[in-house]
Design a protein around this nucleic acid. Sequence first.
DNA 1: AATTAGACCGACTAATCAGTCATATGTAGT
DNA 2: ACTACATATGACTGATTAGTCGGTCTAATT
Lengths: 186, 186
Amino acid sequence: MSDKRTMLIDSAKKLFSENGFYATPTAKIAKEAGVSNGILFHYFPTKTELIHAMYYDIKDRIFKYSMSQIYKEATLKESIYTLWLAAVEWNLENSEDFDFMLQFENSPYFSTEIEKKHEYVQMIIELAEQGRQQSVFKDIDPLLLFQIMSCLVETNVKFLKKNTSLQNDVEFKNRLFEIAWDAIRK
Amino acid sequence: MSDKRTMLIDSAKKLFSENGFYATPTAKIAKEAGVSNGILFHYFPTKTELIHAMYYDIKDRIFKYSMSQIYKEATLKESIYTLWLAAVEWNLENSEDFDFMLQFENSPYFSTEIEKKHEYVQMIIELAEQGRQQSVFKDIDPLLLFQIMSCLVETNVKFLKKNTSLQNDVEFKNRLFEIAWDAIRK
DNA sequence: AATTAGACCGACTAATCAGTCATATGTAGT
DNA sequence: ACTACATATGACTGATTAGTCGGTCTAATT
């Protein structure tokens, strides 16, 4: 994997999260990365392919991080808590990735088919199915449970980004988790 | 309020929800509305102002609809239920408005300052404040409570749009409401 | 030494698009 | 009949931008 390819993705991420991807010319991305315009299209034949590559790159990284946090002997609630916290903290620490994702997932570039394919989503859906069978979660579609958790994480991260003083407040974060937990538990 | 102005907004809504607003040229909007290119800029000096006008137009309409559903003697839970249901049903019935809103609220055109200005948002924030003071809701920022309700409505509408058979299932909708209610109640 | 292939450059182009402008018509007040 | 303003047109423009292309450089292979 080339150095320049990575630098292009990083620059794109930065500029996209600042101005959105429609207001970010490819030429500017190349300039920011300190490479030529032509090399961008050498690695990513179209701007769309660059954007898709970025999406998968981010999902992979958050998945790896989440998996590193989880442990096997945990109860269901503990697992959900760990995953919830991992998602919140990862998104706070990777703010540009978060902004990019928000924009991407609500743009015409995105479809639910793209989303469902990823192993990260599959893993959480399985967990939701488990909790439902054990009568711990409310009796609704596991995909919907996943989407509810996701949208709550999203809302919480947005809120914490605006209220920086609360970002390290463990007690507050626990209260936020209780909201999510009460929503899905029976 | 001119006829053509309304037609421009309607055409823009249709095209934006199909292709997104960056992929929709102003010329196409005018053509779809059956008016000249120039008149678009007579009513909306810039494309951005057209987009903002559409946002306020939609908020106004959902506000009016919600207010028509609510009644004064209702308990707090009843009021929240009515507002939640009104939002879900309105968004289901006004699918193009919903798609536009999703896109807009996650684009660089949008800011929380714009959101907070609207009386619809103000009204719900007040209700949230009320519930918090009465110890019915969890003890968190009313704005956050509003955003949590909004994101849950959003998720529910997205889900119902994909599962058309559930759209008229009152019992299912009640279960969806319980999720939202459990999330915010103490 | 000759060949090849991929990385790399940046000037260039073809197309697109937001917004302008000269012009014209309707219409309401004086 | 005159003024003034809102409504309307559509050809036009200046700026921007995704993607191309002709060509150079380097390093490995034959």
